[in-house]
Computed example of a mutant assay.
Amino acid sequence: MSAYQPVLDPACGGRMFWFDKSDDRVLFGDVRDESWELCDGRRFDVRPDMLMDYRDLPFPDETFRMVVLDPPHLRNAGDTSYMVQKYGCLDQETWKTDIKTMFDECFRVLKTYGTLIFKWNETQIPVSQILKLTAHKPLFGNKQPNRTGTHWIVFMKEDAK
């Protein structure tokens, strides 16, 4: 880990989409630090550089140039299911408040004109519902993902003035 990381991933999970899972430009965070064996015998690790909750980030305002955000997408899944173990699960009762707070916190720690890259799979919750939980407007993204239902959306933090 370097002294300064311009990029924050506050819900890194297994760092699955990162080309370099140990890139020292990125501070990898998550609420869990654990490892387990998957049903096919492979190990799956969630090993953040720092434990953190994306709803209450332990950083001053305007700390990062980029935030990469891939939060849990499921709200209905079994506690011990493969999907929950691998990706986590939203709280059935508080998920809307949690997502709104997550966006607020991620934009708070983002520098003005910084970039937030947001990944969302709409298997259970449409991305249109998620985007209503933030006042920030997307800059661009894939509006009609193919069969996967996974959206990549890019935001730019506007000048607060």
Rank of each mutant, 00 (worst) to 15 (best):
Y54I: 05
F64Y: 12
E105S: 02
R25H: 08
G149T: 01
V46W: 04
S35I: 02
H151S: 04
F59H: 06
V127W: 07
W18L: 15
D49S: 03
T63I: 01
Y54F: 10
V68S: 13
H73D: 08
P72S: 06
S22E: 10
D49W: 03
L131R: 04
L51V: 09
M83A: 15
I153A: 13
F103S: 09
Y4A: 12
G149V: 00
Y87P: 00
M16P: 11
L74H: 14
F103K: 14
A11Q: 13
C106F: 05
D70N: 10
D79R: 12
T134E: 06
D104Q: 15
P71K: 05
D9S: 08
T148H: 09
F155K: 02
Q124D: 02
S81M: 02
M102F: 02
D56V: 06
D98C: 00
T112F: 09
T94H: 14
H136K: 11
C12K: 00
P48C: 02
C12F: 00
W18Q: 14
L57K: 04
K119G: 15
M102R: 04
G114T: 00
R25K: 13
K86V: 08
V127M: 07
D159N: 11
T134K: 10
M102H: 05
Y54L: 06
C106P: 04
V154L: 12
T97P: 03
L74I: 02
Y113N: 15
K111P: 02
Q85I: 00
L139C: 07
N121Q: 12
D9E: 15
E93F: 08
R32W: 07
E37V: 15
D56C: 13
M156Q: 14
P58A: 14
W152E: 10
N142Q: 04
Q92V: 06
K96F: 10
A77D: 05
D70Q: 07
P145A: 03
Q124L: 01
I117H: 10
F44S: 07
D104R: 15
I130C: 08
W18A: 10
F28T: 05
F59Q: 09
P71N: 09
L131S: 01
W36I: 02
F103G: 07
P6Y: 03
M66P: 02
T123F: 10
D61H: 08
F17P: 01
S128L: 05
G29D: 07
V67P: 11
T101S: 10
L90Y: 06
R25V: 09
F44H: 13
E93P: 02
C39R: 12
I117M: 11
E158N: 13
A77T: 06
L69Y: 12
N142T: 01
V7F: 12
S2I: 12
C39T: 08
T123Y: 10
